[in-house]
């Protein structure tokens, strides 16, 4: 029974593993262009295991940002996992805390979505281990392979490769922007704040990104909260009339 649940998890996680393949490959490739060795790049995938934060750290490393600020940015970007594991907690089969603490490491945007939306009823611990293990394996292995490919890239591509990281960010952002004005606002406001701080030289890059991200997330949320309230008030008035 337990064994079946584990293999079912591996099977379900395969789609995530396939999805990670190009992203991890690209990360390995970019890590190479950012100056990381294959050990350093793969170690990041092994120990951190968070796509967006890893990409962000590459862009900050190339800008020469203070390592401490890179850690802080990583924290800000990854506290969203807090929400995910908090909501996942109710769906999971009860288990010992140290067991939960192990598969907690494997909770990413993708594995969370799969576990949270995939099945009705409680999710078994073995299933969670299956899903997270295969996704994690794919992430680590393809990081290393990407780095090897990057090392053998023809020279004329090197200049063009410098854009890859940002193209990747755009490729991640744009699908969520379509039909979602809030996402457009979040990105635009953060970009505007960062541009102002950057061109006035008020803050260093790492701090500026941190401040712009938090300010935009809070301000846009407040704007939407207020709109939500006024909309509710409007509906109430309509009902009275």
């Amino acid at each position: 029974m337990k064994h079946n649940q584990f293999s079912a998890g591996l099977k379900a996680g395969t789609s995530i593993a396939i999805g990670y393949f190009p992203v991890a490959l690209t990360f390995g490739l970019l890590a190479k262009t950012a100056g990381l060795s294959i050990i350093e790049a793969t170690a990041m995938s092994i120990f951190v295991y968070a796509g967006a934060a890893q990409y962000i750290s590459l862009s900050l490393i190339t800008s020469g940002v203070d390592p401490l600020l890179i850690v802080m940015n990583t924290f800000i970007v990854n506290i969203r996992h807090f929400l995910m594991t908090a909501s996942l907690n109710e769906k999971m089969q009860p288990a010992r805390k140290w067991v939960k603490a192990i598969y907690a490491f494997g909770i990413t945007d993708e594995s969370f979505s799969m576990l949270a939306t995939g099945k009705k009823g409680k999710i078994s611990t073995a299933f969670a281990f299956g899903v997270t293990l295969i996704a994690y394996g794919s992430w680590v292995v393809f990081t290393a392979i990407g780095h090897i490919i990057g090392a053998n890239l023809p020279l004329f591509l090197q200049a063009a490769m410098s854009i890859a990281l940002y193209a990747m960010f755009i490729g991640l952002l744009v699908p969520s922007m379509k039909g979602n004005r809030k996402v457009v606002m979040l990105a635009a406001v953060a970009a505007a704040i960062h541009c102002i701080l950057y061109f006035t030289g008020a803050l260093s890059t790492g701090w500026s990104i941190l401040v712009a991200t938090l300010a935009s997330s809070i301000v846009v949320e407040m704007v939407y909260a207020r709109r939500g309230k006024s909309a509710a008030a409007m509906y109430a008035r309509e009902e009275e009339a």
Partner: peptide, 20 residues
Amino acid sequence: QGVLRNIPYAVLGALIFPAI
């Protein structure tokens, strides 16, 4: 919860511009 959910999109905006 709302603010935490916003962060991934905001950080992408700040990362892309003006660095790109």
